[in-house]
């Protein structure tokens, strides 16, 4: 049986790992390499590493750093932030990434996702969708680390990119990022119902129960950062809890 994945997300700032709230108020949370080593040692299901400044600074992630981190990682590794060209994807795969996460660049050039899928295969391309709700409650996509509104409906955007061939979608509501009050279950459910792709719920997890809620709303995998950085809770503990609730996890 296919297992539900628990995926720690690590955010790279200019000096090591950071974690913020609502894509802002960044706090230093230590060095990247020891974190990857610990997660590898604890045998997590998968890791996501995002360079939060790359797009803003119009550069690719630091390939040498990714290579160093990847060499300590024998579970699947997704790298994102500044993934805007075919060459960047090639370099990241060479550095040891297994998948790349594309967000902003997918809005800028409609051929980019298509080309990336054709060249590297669906399994390699993960689409990141960051959303906020407006006062009427409608969801809209945001790019550039949540700073730019794209005026696009996330469901339409997901369907379009499913047709382009992306392999997975990471959905996060910016307003819940780092708040540890739970995922946006509405958008997770809407998305999981609309597309046939695996959905990874992200942003908002603070307790094991939140993970369960997202899984019950159709998420095939759940990602968390603050919960693992700032509380006693661990990916191992999360699996123990989920298993007790009848969710199939990898031991």
């Amino acid at each position: 049986m296919l297992k539900t994945r628990i995926i720690p997300t690590l955010l790279l700032g200019n000096f090591g790992l950071v974690k913020g709230e609502r894509f802002d108020a960044w706090r230093q949370v230590g060095a990247a390499l020891p974190a990857v080593e610990v997660y590898n040692l604890r045998d997590v299901d998968e890791l996501i590493i995002l360079d939060i400044n790359a797009t803003k600074e119009m550069r690719a992630p630091d390939f040498d750093l990714i290579s160093e981190l990847a060499s300590s990682c024998f579970v699947p590794l997704t790298v994102g932030g500044g993934v805007a060209t075919i060459e960047t994807i090639q370099e990241l795969l060479r550095a040891g990434a297994d998948k790349v996460l594309i967000n902003t660049a997918a809005y800028r050039d409609e051929r980019f996702v298509l080309e990336a899928v054709r060249k590297f295969g669906s399994q390699c391309i993960v689409l990141g969708i960051d959303v906020r709700r407006d006062i009427s409650g409608a969801y809209f996509c945001y790019s550039e680390s949540g700073s730019k509104s794209e005026g696009v409906d996330p469901i339409q955007w997901a369907l379009l990119n499913e047709a382009r061939g992306v392999g997975e979608i990471v959905i996060q509501n910016i307003e819940l990022d780092g708040m540890m009050t739970g995922y946006d279950l509405i958008i997770t459910n809407l998305l999981a119902s609309a597309v046939a792709l695996p959905i990874i719920a992200s942003a908002g997890a603070g307790q094991y129960q939140h993970l369960l809620q997202a899984i019950e709303c159709g998420a095939m995998a759940v990602s968390a950062a603050s919960m693992f950085h700032f509380t006693e809770q661990t990916p191992g503990g999360a699996k123990f809890y989920l298993e007790s609730k009848g969710i199939s996890v990898r031991k």
């Binding site: 049986m1 296919l2 297992k3 539900t4 994945r5 299901d45 998968e46 579970v75 699947p76 669906s122 399994q123 392999g167 997975e168 046939a196 792709l197 695996p198 095939m220 995998a221 990898r250 031991k251």
Partner: peptide
């Protein structure tokens, strides 16, 4: 179920093979 099939799933050996020596029977692989 969804496609792609992505994640950890059990591999159930149906035939003895040196390839799976010293691995746990029906272990999870990615």
């Amino acid at each position: 179920e969804r496609l792609p099939h992505v994640g950890w799933n059990e591999v159930i050996q149906v035939k003895q093979s040196e390839l799976f020596a010293r691995t746990e029977p029906s272990a999870d692989y990615y």
